[in-house]
Design a protein around this nucleic acid. Structure first.
Lengths: 132, 132
DNA sequence: AATTTAATTGTTATAATATAACACTATGTA
DNA sequence: TACATAGTGTTATATTATAACAATTAAATT
């Protein structure tokens, strides 16, 4: 069972914004959107983002420097993430495939390195953009 | 057969530096290192980096904003990359596993999105750091 | 060889992303 | 209450990356 995290005011404001967004949001776009709620400085945003990532409520899309809410019950510790990214419309979808998770969780390289975490980003065209 | 790319002067200087480095290099650290060779501005570095990434001579480690030379004959088109990253010493190793490549190249998500590319980053502790 | 086309270069300026440092406040727990 | 931990607000600054434009070089075509 996962510990329930009680979000603080700033964390809540920022999480709600990201959670409502259909696409990943960038830190400064978040900042502009929450300035009316009293969050004035980048650091306030980044601190909330860091915490939200740490507890697995959001994920960072590394190739885009953007943040998306977690919609996958199996990655709530923020340690095993996979996304598909459309290179035209920039739509990002979190992949939840038991097969993929299992494969990657059990993957061992030649050096026998012990992995505690991974992040996978697939790039391609989404259905809509393929048809265009 | 892969097209041979003849690197230009700047591209050569920057590739050689990255290729010799045991760890990934960041753009501005590259800049400082090549200023004596006449490369004075960030853009000169970024342009060479972009090209080198495009032709698959180097890869970007997205989670670190750093660049590493490709040492894997199977990813020279820069479309299928996997790395292991030690969270203590920051050592990065390119993973070349036929099984992994195959698995990911054939992976299909529920939406049937067609992938042309992927990037996978594993995090954990390398052997040395595990023993400490 | 001359022409033209695309790629690369050099440069200045600036945008976008992210963190350091410090004083203060709230929250949970002993 | 007292203590520890986490979060806040703030200013300043570090780090990463791109825009715009003119000049140059390399390669492909005539």
């Amino acid at each position: 069972m996962r510990k329930e995290h009680n979000l603080t005011k700033n964390q809540k404001i920022i999480f709600d914004l990201i959670d409502k967004s259909p696409q990943p949001l960038k830190a400064y776009s978040i900042l502009y959107n929450v300035q009316k709620k009293g969050i004035k400085a980048p650091l306030q945003v980044y601190r909330a983002l860091d915490k939200l990532v740490e507890i697995g409520k959001i994920h960072k899309i590394e190739s885009r420097n953007a943040f998306i809410a977690c919609h996958n019950s199996s990655c709530q510790v923020a340690k095993a993430t996979a996304f598909s990214i459309c290179e035209i419309c920039e739509k990002v979808t979190e992949i939840s495939s038991a097969g993929l998770s299992k494969y990657l969780a059990n993957f061992k390289d030649k050096d026998g390195m012990k992995y505690s975490k991974y992040n996978l980003e697939f790039f391609g065209l989404c259905k809509k953009c393929t048809l265009k």
